[in-house]
Amino acid sequence: MSVLIYAENSKGKLKKSSFEAASYAYSVASMLNTDAYAISIGEVSNEELEKLAKYGIKKILTVNTAQMHNFVNQAYASVIAEAAKSLSSNVVVLSATFSGKALAPRLAVKLQAAYVDGAISLPTNDGAFTVRKGAFSGKAFADVSMSAVNKIIAINPNSFPIAENSQPAVVEAFAPTVKDTDFRTIVKEIIQAADKVSLPEAEIVVSAGRGLKGPENWGMIEELADLLGAATACSKPVSDAHWRPHSEHVGQTGIAVSPNLYIAIGISGAIQHLAGVSSSKVIVVINKDPEAPFFKAADYGIVGDAFDVVPKLIEAVKEFKATHA
């Protein structure tokens, strides 16, 4: 018995969410009196992989062949399933990223495993192995008891702190058997903005709504986000009107986020939007309507016009950064 994580990378660097998964897996392994291992797939250096040792991972398998450099969910699931079998891992932990979500269900079928997507708690230590996840798009939680022998947990990004549990680790090359039919999908192109903070993983999100009146007014939202190292987001009417791309739409039918700080500017707070942000740790609302429902779901608020408040907030953050640098 052991716990295995899938350590996801982006352009050769382990993602922050992989360290979260490692920390989570170490806790689960401690609970089960066993060890936590990792499998990495793609072009990642051994030196980079050794970073996982700091978070309690004892052995890291790496698959770094050219065929495996691009993400193909079917092939990656085959590799992880084989690694889990060779290490006798009956718990697999990964992050509920776009790629994690695409491969984990395939892995669940291969391992005949119970699978929880978007976990926000550690499993209970009462034999029932119960894990909490969000349900009804953030309007509720569901506690899922994982009764199957094999278990797969995709943890929600930014929901678990990274914890250091340093110990020596070995990195070993792993040579899985893959089939040609695992590679029917071919990645043609990856288009990624290099300097933009990714929304699902962001620790701070600056989000704006119809109160901004038009796409030409997003300059100040981007400036505030840049200053805070935040990702930008928007409400549904804004993406429906094509003021901003759909990938920025936060809410019940868009992306659910759980940042440390969510700043909502000119968003009234419809129930569908609140669903997507309810697991944010701190919510700030800026709206000129004191009756906006969002104020009831916020920790801090400013009643005021976005065009007056946001420039002032930008100045205040600049001042704060100058004195706390």
């Binding site: 982006s10 993400f71 990223t97 776009f98 790629s99 029917r184 999908t185 071919i186 990645v187 043609k188 192109e189 990856i190 288009i191 990624q192 903005a193 933009k196 903070v197 990714s198 929304l199 699902p200 993983e201 990938s247």
Partner: peptide
């Protein structure tokens, strides 16, 4: 969709 962008896939 991927974090911060997109992947173009042929299948």
């Amino acid at each position: 969709e991927i974090e911060g962008g997109k992947e173009v896939i042929s299948c």
